[in-house]
Design a protein around this nucleic acid. Structure first.
Length: 419
DNA sequence: TCTGGGGTCCTAGGACCC
DNA sequence: TCTGGGGTCCTAGGACCC
């Protein structure tokens, strides 16, 4: 048999994190709220039982649950990130192949384990013992089915946090008891489309012809059909790929009308995103700013827009990114609206080993200056700022957009840059 | 009067995930 | 009065370039 997958998912993660540091909250309804305490982003089982929904605006409940002792916490992402790292470190010690899928989920390969259920229970008990976070474990021949298994591990009381969907009969039974939208990758819109085409249940989807589904819905849907049949198409991704973009955005606590206030926010977002980018060893030459009015206030005139700017060279320098962001903001700013949200997006991120040390701006090293002249000449010749180099490493060709790195230029550039 | 084709970039939006 | 934040991938049309 193919190596089975386990999906380990933390139960009600943010609420569970709060409980680790406040044990008296155990057994009581707990909700964690989004930024500005706007809406519900995590609920303990007790809070779910009260009918509090994911994403619900908290103001709908505030009065109702005041006296019912629902404990409310503002979110603390630093804490959750730290707890997540503890859980992932624990899991990493218990399997040779771990894929961190999200802040509270990980896929594990269970290749080589004889007693899958015993191992799953071991994972579960070790994580709660070492971190205080309860987890559920779903095991199946494919990632998609492991997701389904995890759902039952969480919901069935007798499962006690572990569910195996290895036998075809068990898979049939599980798929018969869920909706299309319960499947990983199918949400409301796609489910509606499928239903229009006569596919109304997960079992019907599994029975569909994979090739035909590819024609009608694309390669992603074909993979889903195969995964439902127990043919693994989605391998464990052991290496976390570099981020392609980094966003820093916030809804304002109140509606904002003046430009200086938005400028201030955009400055903060730029600095925050730049810091995050540097921590990940990345840099960028593409940045965008967006601002939005409050779409829930239908009586207000609406405006939402984004503007991108390109820097002459990739950088991770906060001051340069702030300047660029203000330029973008100036281009899209419209007076007379009441703004609710703004953000800064850093895009087309590149490895920072190409751009470290502000080298593109004022290199002191004579060789670097020489290379800079060559770069200028090349950029002049091609009419674009597409060439750069690293001071610390070997001179190298890089591009502001990866798709501009065409092979016919690469060799020539490499030669010219070798001072 | 006829009026290409390939390519990139930007903006916008849709769909999905956590 | 109060409705999150951070990601990925895909598509489409217009501007612009060669």
């Amino acid at each position: 048999m193919v190596a089975p997958f386990a999906l380990v998912d933390c139960n009600n993660f943010y609420a569970s994190c709060e409980r680790v540091f406040e044990p008296k909250l155990r057994g009581r309804p707990v909700v964690v709220l989004s930024n500005n305490d706007g809406c519900v982003i995590a609920r303990s089982n007790e809070a779910k039982a009260l009918g509090i929904g994911m994403g619900d605006p908290w103001h709908l409940y505030r009065a109702r649950f005041a006296e019912q002792a629902v404990t409310v916490r503002s979110s603390n992402y630093t804490l959750y990130g730290d707890m997540s790292a503890r859980v992932m470190r624990t899991l990493a010690g218990l399997t040779p192949s771990l894929e961190i899928y999200s802040i509270d989920e990980a896929f594990l390969s269970l290749a080589g384990f004889e007693d899958l259920e015993a191992h799953a229970r071991h994972l579960r008990s070790t994580v709660i013992q070492w971190t205080g976070i309860p987890v559920s474990v779903g095991i199946a021949p494919t990632k998609l089915l492991a997701k389904v298994a995890n759902r039952f591990a969480k919901r069935e009381a007798h499962a006690d946090g572990v569910k195996l969907l290895i036998d075809p009969a068990a898979q049939d039974d599980a798929l018969a008891r869920i909706e299309l939208t319960d499947l990983w990758g199918i949400a409301r819109r796609m489910a509606a489309r499928l239903k229009c085409e006569g596919i109304e249940t997960p079992l019907q989807l599994r029975a569909a012809d994979p090739q035909d589904m590819r024609q009608r819905f694309g390669v992603v849907m074909q993979r889903m059909v195969l995964e439902l049949r127990g043919m693994s198409c989605l391998p464990i991704e052991l290496v976390t790929p570099d981020r392609k973009s980094i966003v820093s955005s916030r809804s304002f606590g109140r509606l904002i009308k003046t430009r200086p206030e938005v400028e201030e926010a955009v400055t903060t977002f730029s600095a925050r995103a730049a810091a995050k980018m540097r921590r990940q060893g990345l840099a960028t030459a593409h940045l965008a700013v967006f601002i939005e009015t409050n779409p829930f206030r239908e009586q207000d005139p609406q405006y939402h827009a984004s503007r991108a700017v390109t820097l002459p060279v990739a950088t991770a320098d906060t001051a340069k990114l702030i300047t660029a962001a203000q330029t973008a903001l100036a281009a899209l700013w419209r007076p007379g609206y009441r703004y609710k949200k703004a953000g800064v997006m850093l895009m087309d991120l590149v490895k920072a080993d190409r751009v470290q040390g502000g080298l593109f701006d004022a290199p002191d090293d004579p060789k670097a200056k020489m290379r800079m002249r060559t770069v200028d000449a090349l950029n002049g010749r091609y009419g674009r700022d597409t060439v750069g180099f690293g001071v610390t490493g070997q001179p190298r060709v890089w591009t502001l957009r990866s798709d501009m790195l065409s092979p016919r230029y690469t060799t020539e550039w490499e030669e010219l840059l070798r001072v």
